[in-house]
């Protein structure tokens, strides 16, 4: 199933960067995506399930939780996993385009994982 990927900045992400990027909480925050409940249903995944997200340049796995977001979009705080999804092409601007990537999503495990964080 295809989605638009929207990496974002969030308060919890900023707080966990201050605490330390080596921490489990930081990793949980940047590994947790938000999706519309109907999209999760269509994927056949429960809130907290593990998904694999693929672009032309890379892939990463995330926990996905349901949240009040638009259909067809995935929101996730910027972090090491999102960096796997966009490559080094900056269209000559120096800035990797990070928002609005079309991504392919497949479910890795349908059941909730303990580390999934509440919507950021």
């Amino acid at each position: 199933m295809r989605f638009l990927l929207m990496p974002i900045r969030s308060n919890k992400q900023g707080v966990q960067i201050n605490v330390g990027k080596d921490g489990a909480d930081y990793n949980a925050v940047v590994n947790t995506m938000q999706a519309h409940p109907d999209d999760l249903k269509e994927l056949g995944a429960a809130s907290g399930a593990t998904i694999r997200v693929r672009t032309d340049v890379g892939e990463a796995t995330f926990q996905v939780v349901e949240a009040k977001v638009s259909r067809g979009m995935l929101f996730v705080p910027y972090g090491p996993p999102t960096c796997q999804l966009y490559g080094g092409d900056t269209d000559g601007t120096g800035m990797p385009t990070s928002k609005g990537w079309e991504v392919e999503v497949e479910v890795v495990s349908r059941e909730p994982q303990a580390s999934a964080k509440e919507p950021q």
Binding site: C83, G88, T90, G92, T93, G94
Partner: peptide, 29 residues
């Protein structure tokens, strides 16, 4: 020159052969 002397492009092209990172952890790049 953005796109030429900017970090993402330098790493992607393999142009640099040493780096000093000031103020934060080094990125995987």
């Amino acid at each position: 020159n953005p796109g030429e002397f900017t970090t993402t492009d330098l790493i992607a092209r393999g142009d640099i052969d040493a780096a000093l990172v000031l103020g934060s952890s080094a990125a995987p790049g």
